[in-house]
């Protein structure tokens, strides 16, 4: 095994006295898609926010061998980590193009035109709408813009929080295809999804999270075949 891309060791997050994430450990290899699945409120979003540094979290976080646990969000972005959050967090009153340009803020103006070209090639819809305000986009386009903005920063690890949230099934398929393409282009992806079936189909490795803790982990195809996973996350309860 080579050096893990991301190595999270006993990470915890508390809101007041409530522990939302309890001593979670997680590793991922470069060039892979790793998914964390689990029910609403299991702490998946909290986990991603903690890895990104948005929430204070005791525990170790190493990215490409470097300890980033004391770093601010900005420093983690600089190191090559990038989060596409559940709520997208776009600059809604600014144009699509400005949103993308700001995605390359830390890289400076040199990286912008090249980055724009790459992103527009991947998301032609965004090119059509480049002058439109981000707030006027549809749900699917917003997700594309959020991913496009993230890619402008040339991340080495992309963390996607519920990329399929609120999207029509056809668009969900598009998004997942893009996720697979991104892996092929060398970006590692940490994927959090409600849609466990789709997530397990694209992922190499998977973790199951329940009430703040990792309860299962394994190769994605193994988990997809595990009866416990099937009952809890892939079926409609015990009645199927």
């Amino acid at each position: 095994m080579n050096l893990p891309m991301l190595d999270i060791d006993r990470l915890s997050v508390s809101y007041g006295k409530v522990e939302a994430v309890r001593e979670v450990s997680l590793r991922m290899q470069p060039g892979t898609i790793v998914t964390v699945i689990g029910a609403n409120g299991a702490g998946k979003t909290t986990l991603l926010n903690a890895i990104m540094g948005v929430l204070p979290a005791p525990g170790a976080a190493r990215f490409e061998g470097r300890d980033v646990s004391g770093d601010e969000v900005e420093a983690r972005v600089g190191a090559g980590l990038c989060l596409v959050p559940e709520k997208r967090e776009l600059f809604t009153t600014m144009s699509v193009e400005d949103n993308l340009r700001l995605g390359a803020y830390r890289l400076g103006s040199g990286a912008i035109s090249e980055g724009l070209e790459t992103v527009f090639a991947r998301f032609p819809r965004l090119k059509e709408r480049r002058a439109q305000l981000a707030g006027t986009l549809s749900g699917g386009e917003r997700q594309m813009l959020a991913m496009g903005r993230a890619l402008m920063g040339k991340p080495r690890l992309l963390m996607l929080d519920e990329p399929s949230l609120g999207l029509a099934p056809r668009i969900v398929k598009d998004i997942f295809h893009i996720i697979m393409e991104l892996r092929a282009s060398g970006v590692s992806i940490l994927l959090v999804e409600q849609n466990a079936r789709a997530a397990l189909q694209v992922a190499d490795y998977a973790y199951v999270m329940e009430i703040g803790s990792i309860t299962m982990e394994g190769r994605a195809e193994d988990l997809a075949a595990d009866p416990r996973v099937i009952e809890s996350y892939l079926g409609l309860g015990g009645h199927t």
């Binding site: 990104m52 948005v54 969000v73 900005e74 972005v77 600089g78 990038c82 989060l83 959050p85 967090e89 776009l90 600059f91 809604t92 009153t93 600014m94 400005d98 340009r101 700001l102 995605g103 803020y105 830390r106 903005r149 993230a150 402008m152 920063g153």
Partner: peptide, 17 residues
């Protein structure tokens, strides 16, 4: 624009560095 972006969405601004 970075200032405006911070104003529109602080978290979004932090996430792009």
């Amino acid at each position: 624009k970075a200032l405006r972006a911070t104003a529109v969405n602080r978290l979004g601004a932090r996430l792009v560095g």
